[in-house]
Amino acid sequence: MDQLLNDFSPGLFFMQAIILLVLILLMRKFAWKPILDSLQNREEGIQNALDSAEKAKLEMQNLQADNERLLQEARVERETMLKEARDIKNKMIEEAKSEAETQANKLIEQAQTAIEGEKKAAMAELKSHVAGLSLEIAEKILNEELAGKDKQLNLVESMIGDAKLN
């Protein structure tokens, strides 16, 4: 300790204090302040660049998502349109089918009624015709049968025989 105190030089201490003080002030003015400031500026710049890159990336992602969504929507729309078209087509076919069917049915019905009418008319005509023929035939047969007197008496005889105790 004594030797240290002996070695301690107040003059050197004083010189060192002055040199250090001046050095700190000089360095602050000419070196540290500009260096630290530009370091900070640069770091902020880098940070900003990174931030904006991040933001751009996010925007890009948003855009991509948007695109994806639009595409999806378009796809869905196409799908629905196709479906609608298909439906309409089916419906139209169905309608056409049913109309055709009803038309056909109607035609068939008409035809049937017409056929029926024809048949009836034909039948009626046939009947009257058959009746006329029958009358003619009957007239002719009667004319034939009752042409002699014996024959008429025989008939009356058989008739009276049949109509006994009635």
Partner: peptide
């Protein structure tokens, strides 16, 4: 001190 002023002064510049 001189070395520091020269070196870091150049860096600052």
């Amino acid at each position: 001190g001189l070395l520091m002023i020269l070196g870091f002064g150049a860096l600052a510049k």
